[in-house]
């Protein structure tokens, strides 16, 4: 039997001097397998064309539709409305990112900055020959390395992080995970000293307060807790 659910979404346009932050309430019939993304699309199509939110893939791959759902960051496309017994979902934009409007934030530019900051690419002195196969890796190591590559840069770990909210320059779990990924990859010739230069400070690995909300909310279930501990042990051991 279907029920009526209530979506309470924060609305605010920081570009407009007339706009005042408030919650708009929408009531709609829940359908089978309804995701929050489907509900929001229905609201925008039938109730409020002005409601802004981000999406691309609708399948938990692009990482665009992150938002705070009843206080916790989650992907709208992977949030089933039936999992909320009281049928009330309060939505807010993810903190820590620049607010564009309503539920829409700019994760793209932040992630771009993060990638540049941790030099998120293979560093090697060998000129790659793309006509030849890449040097092989131990399968176990390859699995562990590419496991970390499953990050979709949705920003949920950043929005979940209390440290990041207090200290805007903190690199966040996504950045530390990226460093761990390249530190594990034998194709990357950077040393621990090189990685220290990227994240060896209080805005990097030593700023992390181990609140682990990143790990507990990551929609891709990445091993953020252990990889951050791994990088911390590695970098603190440097002389």
């Amino acid at each position: 039997m279907s029920r009526t659910i209530t979506i309470r979404a924060m609305k605010y346009n920081p570009q407009s001097k007339l706009s005042k932050a408030h919650f708009a309430e929408y009531k709609l019939e829940e359908t089978d397998g309804m995701t929050l993304f489907i509900a929001l699309t229905k609201i925008r199509e039938t109730m409020d064309a002005d409601l802004s939110f981000d999406f691309v893939c609708r399948a938990g791959i692009c990482g665009s539709c992150g938002m705070m759902v009843n206080g916790k960051p989650a992907l709208a496309c992977r949030t089933l409305t039936k999992n909320f017994p009281d049928g009330v979902l309060q939505l807010m934009p993810m903190p820590a990112f620049k607010l564009i409007k309503d539920l829409s934030v700019d994760t793209g530019n932040w992630m771009n900055g993060m990638s540049k900051r941790v030099e998120s690419w293979i560093h090697t002195n060998h000129k790659p020959d793309i006509s030849k196969l890449e040097a092989p890796m131990e399968p176990k190591l390859a699995d562990e390395t590419f496991e970390l590559d499953r990050c979709i840069e949705c920003g949920i770990c950043v929005a979940a992080c209390g440290t990041k909210l207090m200290r805007p320059n903190f690199i966040g779990a996504v950045g530390l995970n990226r460093v761990a990924r390249f530190a594990m990859d034998p194709h990357d010739e950077r040393t621990d000293e090189d990685f220290y230069e990227l994240v060896g400070d209080d805005d990097g690995i030593f700023g992390c307060m181990s609140l682990v909300a990143c790990e507990d909310n990551c929609p891709k279930h990445l091993p953020l807790q252990s990889k951050i501990a791994y990088m911390r042990r590695k970098l603190v051991a440097l002389r």
Partner: peptide
């Protein structure tokens, strides 16, 4: 937290998240 904004941001965040490790901090 060394200023009001940091305290306010963290307290609001902890209240919203209801996440053990965040609240325990």
């Amino acid at each position: 937290p060394i200023n009001f904004r940091q305290y306010q941001a963290y307290k609001t965040h902890a209240g919203m998240m209801k996440h053990d490790d965040t609240t325990m901090w």
